[in-house]
């Protein structure tokens, strides 16, 4: 039964991850004033990439990178409960808590560093360096916000955190913590102005520069699932989770649209600027928010 539940969770995360990626392309196309691709475009892309010939080899370490990233995303999805009550779609959340999830979020980028480093491509290495630098700055405000939420609920368990918000969601109870978490969430999603990792005008595709075919498809799938996991995490921590699947979709969708729109109207910060910005503004918000608890 648990196995079926886990499979269902993965399927939902995969499906909605790709759907949201398609929506992202469509919505930003609308901001640009054009129609954009069809919603199923990302599915076509990933199927095409899976059947593409693979001709590059850099040794097995190189291939391990995307695999570790994908497993990080899968574990992340499994450890975050989709719904705030009931038996189904809870996954492994009874075996872990928020701290485990925060730890698992770092696994992906580290695995990527491992793989890309062995390709020897300077742009890939540069992208990974940028990614890790930014990650350090992103985590500080996000951890502050997460600690605040945990102190407020008195537990690191997702169920208890969501129960604590049954009267008032954390977004309104602790707006400063939400602001801190939201800004670093934008960074985690790779949205402008914090999209310095894969900036095409600077480092080609960054970490993905050398990946093609199946491994690029794997990277695409993992990033789709991972962004769904991040949406879930934000919904659970600050919007009190969801009672049923419809509410979950509605809440993640609103959050996702907000991130997309903000991403399409701001210029990209350079590495130093984004670290500086993240250390200064959201961290300050987080500290003040913690102090007000």
């Amino acid at each position: 039964m648990l196995l079926l539940d886990l499979l269902l969770m993965l399927l939902i995360a995969y499906g909605f991850g790709f759907l949201y990626y398609g929506l992202y392309r469509n919505l930003s196309a609308r901001v640009h004033g054009r129609f954009g691709p069809s919603l199923a475009q990302s599915f076509s892309d990933s199927i095409k990439l899976f059947v593409k010939e693979e001709s590059t080899t850099f040794g097995w370490m190189f291939y391990l990178g995307p695999v570790i990233m994908a497993s990080g995303a899968v574990l992340n999805v499994l450890f975050i409960p989709f719904l705030n009550q009931g038996e189904s779609l809870q996954g492994l959340s009874s075996y872990g808590n928020l701290i485990v999830v925060l730890y698992l979020m770092v696994l992906g980028p580290l695995g990527n560093a491992l793989g890309v480093g062995s390709s020897g491509n300077p742009f890939g290495v540069m992208g990974v360096t940028r990614g890790l630098t930014r990650l350090l700055a992103l985590e500080l405000p996000f951890y502050l916000a997460a600690i605040g939420v945990m102190i407020d609920a008195g537990s690191a368990d997702f169920g208890i955190i969501m129960q604590a918000q049954s009267t008032q969601s954390n977004m309104f109870a602790h707006p400063l913590l939400f602001a801190a978490a939201f800004i670093s969430f934008l960074g985690f999603m790779g949205k402008s102005p914090f999209d310095v990792v894969g900036a095409p005008q600077e480092v080609y595709s960054g970490p993905a520069t050398e990946f093609s075919g199946k491994f690029l498809a794997l990277l695409m799938s993992q990033s789709a699932m991972f962004s769904f996991a991040k949406l879930l995490l934000m919904v659970n921590l600050f919007w009190g989770g969801a009672d049923h699947l419809g509410e979950l979709v509605a809440k993640t969708f609103v959050l996702f649209v907000a991130a997309t729109f903000i991403g399409s109207v701001y210029a990209r910060f350079s590495t130093v600027q984004s670290v500086e910005f993240l250390i200064r503004i959201p961290t300050l918000l987080g500290i003040v928010g913690l102090a007000l608890l």
């Binding site: 609308r30 901001v31 004033g33 054009r34 399409s264």
Partner: peptide, 11 residues
């Protein structure tokens, strides 16, 4: 700039 989404695409 987001008001653009309420306009019909010009493509």
């Amino acid at each position: 700039a987001l008001s653009k989404i309420f306009e019909h695409p010009q493509t």
